[in-house]
Every structure is written in structure tokens, then in C-alpha cells.
Design a protein around this nucleic acid. Structure first.
Lengths: 351, 351
DNA sequence: TATTAGCACTCAACATCATTAAGTGCTAAA
DNA sequence: TTTAGCACTTAATGATGTTGAGTGCTAATA
């Protein structure tokens, strides 16, 4: 168990280290602790913290640096979200006051603001994604053997793709496929649809079309696209600043990671039962807690927002493990509420 | 006027410098020149080349590095495109043999292959872009006061956007707007459409709708999107390798440059009347010839391909000014033909 | 006249060594 | 329990010497 002062020392070490990036010495702490103690006393506390595995030395006579465990302790016990400062608040309000024609614009803009305010990478995920359902599917002939496939989801999202159909396909067959899909799959979640395609649908379509592979491929592709459009990422290039990578290849891999929807999904959806739930709705996962080695010195701050009946969404910040958590957590906490309210407003006005 | 041997020396300096990135000394050249001469002779030639401003020293006793002028001379007089090597050729053939459902997939894949083969950044621009015309415009009510706007171009590209319409708009008004647009603008180039929107269309629409601003905005937005989808870029992150930037901010600016369609358009469409046209259809522009400072140590290799009646397109490689030009130019030269043929095939099969 | 061997000279890159300053742990006194 | 004092450690910095790749110039050579 840590003493009150030891906790303060740890907190200060983390604060200074986050600001300067340099190991923190006992004298530095002495200047900023609320109580008046000598550097020797702090050295003693530091020795205790080091024993507990919460801080580390970079070499035998260096200042201290928070360890992974130290960060974890800080996040679980010491972190208090900071109030969002007035300028930031102002900026947020201002941007949210634009007109939005599409629900997702709101979510996309959020990513942009978040990355600009933090200088990290922001990822947002629209609501309804959890229970995104198929609302309609259409095939429209464009002439020249081209067909426009349209897929509409319950969120109002529309995905289109043009296909060139084989000679053998007739208009009636297109009609039939369309009818089958609309009859059997509308109203079901996209994930279910994807699963049922290869099983339930094949026998149904086969009645009308000899080799249904082409159509299955079409539907697969367009479903994939509908599924892919969920993410909004902003500030990708900020990894250059915060990922102090020695190796260019690592940097490219990391970029690839956040550029690949699948991998991001995995990252965001990992639930962290390991960590205690915090009273505010924001959770922080440290890089070393992820399976992927690339993230070792990073940190993912993640918040779920609840847009009532419209579903849940996620906002997240990816940054260095050494970051001003108070500020970022405070920011995300505000954003959850703000975004939830705006989205509710949006749909209330328009439904 | 340079002597034959001086030209050879320049060529070798560039070759070695491109491979090693290091200044090239007289002894190194001695080993690889076709004729047998001493290093002292080469030093004399080098002095002449330096006098002509084609090569430079990094310090008083260093080897030589090609200057901007030296590269220009090389590109204009000495460069011969290399045959594409069998493995590369094989890879190209193989990928082009996939099935493509959409015309643009072909062009997008090309960017991917090019960036993978060169490890630089590849930019491709589909054909028909030059004379892309509006082929149809539809507004479909989705319920809940939402409207799906569909725009179809002559290339078969379809763009959709969902809008929330104000209370006051009726179904008849939607019909009217649709009819006006289809009657007056179909068949015209997208650029013309964009220009005429605010002038010709306003009085026409005003007959049906009191304040047409909302609809103009809708059409503007969707046209912009149609226009934006022209580029395919691959290998963005390779700039990390070849742009030896000291400054992270510069790197971010550069990324922003190639990430911004407008700026890329400007870059690609700059015609280079300054340079002599080469007999092969590939032109090289050196970074210092661009207005933008960021590109100073880069080079843009650009080729136009002619897909017959389907229009012209562009393929380009952005890389360091020190690159294996023979290979890259050879590659692009092959790609022009290949891509032109594939696209013609594609439309012949499907039209 | 063009080429070459030879040589003195230059300079970045590297290694070696001393100096400094920030920090620690420990001891003994308050 | 806290603190002053001190010996000790180490990265960072800077001065100094050494090496090697390269040049330009001169004088001899084909």
C-alpha cells in the first residue's frame, strides 16, 4: 500500500515525464509538491515506488521514469479527468454548430476535432453500428450490361457499386435475385446477412440462376463496403510525432495497422475486463496490454457514447503512453455526452 | 559541349550515386567505365563537368554528386528506358489477369502494382476524366424526410449521398428539380455542369422552389464527390523512405500534399513545355522545377496513356530525385501500353 | 596534345579521453 | 521520520588525435 505522499510523488513524476519526456529527479519534484519536503525525503519515497515496480531508472544514477505498471496504477487510482478548457470548449461548440446533412458527418467531424485538439490520432465509430440492419437492396440496369447495385442500411447509409454482368444473365434473373434478398434478408443485422449468404441464400437463388457464384460475389462485395464505411480516422500522420520509432519499417507497419479497418476493429472491440471500470465512461488501455508488439509504447483512450435508441458508438484516441491523461480523458468524457446529444438532436429533427 | 567520355562519366556518377546515395570518387568510376583510363583522367573530366555545373562537391575533398542541372542533362540526353525485367513483367501480367467488375478497379490496381514494384508513391488517373459527362441524376425518397441523391457519369461511375430535406419540400418539388437537371445538364461535362449550376439553373429551379439554395448545395456536394473520386494513390507511406526529411513537420506537409486531391491535380496537370519532349511518352519533372519547396529533392515521372475513344489517363510515380530512372521510365512506358490495352479490352467486352 | 603516375593537401568520420552536471544511495544528525 | 551532507555513477559534451577517401596540381610519358 502506498502512502499519501508516495502517490503524490508518482503523480508528479508522471506529470513531469509527460511534459518533458525526460527522467524526473528528486529536486524537480520537490519544487512542485504541495507540501514542503526535502529532496532526500522524496528520494526515499522514490526508492519505495521503485521497489513496488511503479517507476524505473534508465541508468544507475538517472532520474525516474514511470513503468507500465506505474501508468496502470496512475490510471486506476490517481487520474482525475480535467475540465475541458474554455478555448477547446468553444472550438467544439462552434464546429458542432455547422449544418450536417448526413448523420455520419457528425461522427466524422468529431474525429477531426479530437485529433486537432490532442494532436494524436482520433478514431470514431458511428452509432447504430451495433445493430446496423439491412433495409433494402436494389439492382438497377444502367445499359451496356452494367448493373448498379444499391444497398441501404437502417442508418440511412447507402452503398453503391457498379458491376458488369455476364452475357447469360437476364433481366428477370436480376429481378428474382433482388426479390429473394429483399424477402429473406431485409431487417436482419448486416453480420447475420453476411453469414447467411453462403448458406441460406444459395439454394434460394439457385432456383433461378444456374451458377449463383457471380451474384454472391456481388452481394459480398457490397456488404463488405457497407461494413467498411463505419470508421472515421483523423490525424493519422500524427503518429510521426508521438510514436518515437527508431525504425521506419515499424512506423509503416503501425500506419498500416491504423489504416486497416479490420485491425482497428479488433483493437477497439477488445474489451478490457482486466481493468477496473472507472466511474466516468472512459477507459484507458496501455499498449503493452495489447497483443500487438507495435503498440507497446502507446495508449488507447476509449469511450462509448449512448445515443439512446439509435445505438452506441465509440470514440477513441490513440497516442503515446506518455500523454496528458487528465486532459484527454476529460475531453473524451465531454465528447461522449456532446456527441450523444447532437446525434439525438439530429435524428429528432429529422425523423 | 561535352565529350563522349564526359557524358559517360556523368552517367556513371548518377548511376553510382543513385545506388549508394554517397558522393562518387574518381576511382569508383574507373572500375565501371567501359574504356580503360586512369583515375587522374577521370578527375580531369570531373573538373570539366563541375565547371559546366552538372556535378558538385559536398566539401572540398569529397567525391561528386550530381546537381539539379546534371540530372536535367541526364534525363534529356543520356537516359535510355530499360527493359522491364521478367519477374516484374510476370507480376504485372498476373495481377492484370484478375477479374475486374468496375473500370476504375483496373486503374486503382495499377497504382498498387506500380508502388509495389518501385517502392515509391504511385498515382493513377482513370481515362474519361478529361471528358467525363453527366449521364443521369436521381433523387429517391428514403422515408423519414431523407432523400438519396444519385449521380451517374458517362464512365459508369455512380456517386450517392443522403440528405435530410427541410419540412417545406414536397415530393413534387423533388420531381421538378430532378427533371430540370436531367433535361438541361445531362450530356454536359462535369466541369461545365459545375459552372452552370449557379447561373443557368437558379432561375429554372426558382420556378418550382422558393429558396433553391438547399438544392444547389446538394448538387454541388455530390458533384464535388464525383470529381474527387478520380485519383488512385498507392504507397503514400513510402515517402518515409525516400524523402530524407530532417523535419517531421515537412514530412507531414508532404503527406498532406499527396493526400489532398486538389494539390495533386495541380501537380499532375502542370505541363512541362520547358522540357524537350522525349520520344517515349514519359516525362520527368525534377522537384526543383516545381513551385513548391517541399518537392525540392523529389522527382515526378509521368506518362499519359491513350485509351482510344475512351479518353486519356495519367500514371505517375513520385520518388526521390535520385532514383533508377531507366528502370522506372521503362516500367511506366510499358504500363502506358498495357493499361491502355486492358481498358480498351474491358470496354470492348462490356459495351 | 591527351594521359598518367606521384604527391601534398583537405576534410568528414571515428575514436579516445577529460570534464561537467544531474542525479542517486547512504550515513549520521536533527 | 526527515534532512543535510557527501561519495559515487553515468550520459552528455567537448577537445584532440588518427584515419582514409578523395581532390588538384605538376611533371613525366605515349
Amino acid at each position: 500500500m502506498l502512502t499519501k505522499r508516495e502517490m503524490l510523488v508518482l503523480k508528479e513524476i508522471i506529470r513531469h515525464y509527460n511534459e518533458s519526456g525526460q527522467p524526473v529527479g528528486s529536486k524537480t519534484i520537490m519544487g512542485t509538491l504541495p507540501m514542503k519536503v526535502s529532496s532526500a525525503t522524496i528520494r526515499n519515497d522514490m526508492a519505495a515506488l521503485e521497489n513496488a515496480g511503479l517507476i524505473e531508472k534508465t541508468h544507475s544514477s538517472s532520474g525516474r521514469v514511470p513503468s507500465d505498471q506505474g501508468y496502470r496504477y496512475y490510471l486506476d487510482h490517481l487520474l482525475q479527468p480535467a475540465m475541458v478548457n474554455p478555448e477547446d470548449l468553444n472550438m467544439i461548440q462552434q464546429i458542432f454548430h455547422q449544418k450536417f446533412y448526413q448523420g455520419d458527418d457528425l461522427v466524422a467531424q468529431s474525429a477531426k476535432i479530437l485529433s486537432e485538439l490532442t494532436h494524436y490520432t482520433a478514431i470514431t465509430l458511428g452509432p447504430e453500428v451495433n445493430n446496423l440492419r439491412l433495409s433494402g437492396f436494389q439492382l438497377m440496369p444502367l445499359g451496356n450490361r452494367r448493373v448498379l447495385a444499391l444497398l441501404i442500411t437502417t442508418s440511412g447509409q447507402v452503398v453503391n457499386k457498379t458491376f458488369v454482368i455476364p452475357d447469360t444473365v437476364t433481366g428477370e434473373q436480376l429481378e428474382a435475385v433482388m426479390r429473394v434478398i429483399n424477402d429473406t434478408l431485409v431487417g436482419k443485422p448486416i453480420s447475420t446477412v453476411m453469414n447467411q449468404l453462403d448458406t441460406h441464400l444459395v439454394p434460394l437463388i439457385s432456383r433461378y440462376i444456374h451458377s449463383p457464384d457471380f451474384f454472391l460475389d456481388v452481394v459480398h462485395r457490397i456488404l463488405n463496403e457497407a461494413n467498411a464505411d463505419r470508421f472515421h480516422i483523423s490525424g493519422k500522420m500524427n503518429i510521426l510525432d508521438y510514436a518515437q520509432m527508431d525504425d521506419v519499417d515499424q512506423l509503416k507497419s503501425l500506419y498500416h495497422l491504423i489504416d486497416t479497418e479490420d485491425q482497428l476493429t479488433a483493437l477497439l472491440s477488445l474489451d478490457d475486463t482486466t481493468n477496473e471500470p472507472s466511474e466516468h465512461g472512459v477507459t484507458v488501455r496501455l499498449g503493452h496490454e495489447f497483443p500487438n508488439q507495435l503498440l507497446s509504447h502507446m495508449s488507447l483512450i476509449r469511450a462509448t457514447y449512448h445515443a439512446g435508441e439509435y445505438g452506441d458508438g465509440i470514440i477513441a484516441i490513440l497516442g503515446p503512453s506518455s500523454m496528458p491523461y487528465s486532459r484527454v480523458v476529460g475531453l473524451l468524457d465531454l465528447f461522449r455526452d456532446e456527441l450523444a446529444r447532437r446525434i439525438a438532436d439530429y435524428y429528432r429533427d429529422h425523423d
